[in-house]
Write a protein that binds this DNA or RNA. Structure first.
Lengths: 200, 200
DNA sequence: CACAGATCGAACCGGTCGGTACGATCCGCG
DNA sequence: CGCGGATCGTACCGACCGGTTCGATCTGTG
């Protein structure tokens, strides 16, 4: 019995629905941890439909990662924007948001980093690199706005803290990671914005 | 023509040779990126031999990760020991060693983290968690020896920097990562060992 | 020198994978 | 109302996967 009665036949909507439904499944199971057949069964979609929209499993994966990277970056950016103008508050907002993510039972680390580790494909690596670029831009912006002597360096250091916190939360122990990372980030921020260190 | 003429028939030695030869191949190609047949061909070993020693592909993977984690931890620990007694020098030794690793063309990130992202198997996750434990112990030791007010917190923050630096070097840009991470680590160390912050 | 066991190469197995093909069915537009 | 296209379920394909088996051959020990 093809085409269930109530379904909407709208290619664009179908594509978006597949993407949205596939994202958490591929995140939980891993890119190669689930086959196209089982994936389609979970999405409630036939293989033919999936292949018409994405051409290839890799095509779906790349579209999914691209969308996820943009969504996550927007989420963090909005958290920063909602924190006001004080750079220390903006830093706090970043790591508070991250800690909320770490506490989610579905948390399994950064989807883009996981994907790059799983799938040795250039396109996936490129998406991951662009994802880190977006994070770096956000953090460098905070560093610059804070008046850091070298916003680029501080931005990279904050990026390391963000990614390191995510790794530790995913693979070691999520409790208190956001808090510790936040303290570290604010220490770096403070040190980088002090015109002359009083201790030297 | 089975068993080439000059080969040594010594189970323990064979097992060690398989482990040593398999490590870089699995690191480069990914755990699921190469099949047992091709892997055996590269190792110059028959499938039967591999399966007699490790029982399963997962068995080989786990033995390999375990050995690699111990080897890497020993390598870092020795670098720290060779740096003398000054905690700042020890920190510098850690990130200098890491930067040398990042600059290796074969560098592809932390093998244990990659494995945990690829293989959704409890045993692999456990090895990865233990690996982070070893790192944490080393870093907490430095923090304690430095007289940090809270060595446990500082140790975790240093762990985040180490893992974050490795992630950024693997997926973004390795140039100068060790240096930036080292500066950040020393800033945290300095702040954590100042009895009373003069700026409060 | 003979025997036990380690190793080899190759064939083989069932299962699963990504991807394709097809006829049947339903939606949306003209 | 009718047609084109989107979708369905299912069967099918070749390739490869992890793992087993087997006979031939070599090594090390006693």
């Amino acid at each position: 019995m093809p085409v269930p009665k109530g379904s909407t036949i709208d290619p664009a909507r179908t594509r978006a629905a597949i993407l949205e439904a596939a994202t958490p499944v591929l995140y939980e199971r891993g890119l190669d941890g689930i086959g196209v057949a089982e994936l389609c069964a979970r999405l409630g979609v036939s293989k033919e439909t999936l292949y018409r929209h994405f051409g290839t499993k890799d095509g779906l994966v790349e579209a999914m990662l691209e969308a996820r990277s943009e969504r996550v970056t927007r989420w963090l950016t909005e958290a920063v924007a909602a924190a006001g103008q004080d750079p220390a508050d903006q830093i706090a907002a970043v790591f508070d948001a991250l800690q909320r993510w770490y506490d989610d039972p579905a948390f399994r680390g950064c989807a883009m980093l996981n994907a790059a580790a799983q799938h040795h494909v250039e396109a996936v690596r490129a998406i991951t690199a662009r994802h880190l670029d977006r994070y770096l831009e956000l953090l460098t912006g905070i560093a610059g706005h804070a008046g850091a002597a070298d916003p680029h360096t501080l931005g990279r250091q904050l990026l390391m803290l963000v990614e390191g916190a995510t790794v530790v939360a995913a693979h070691h122990d999520a409790a208190g990671v956001g808090e510790h990372a936040r303290q570290a980030a604010q220490t770096l921020l403070s040190a980088a914005t002090t015109r002359t260190d009083p201790r030297d």
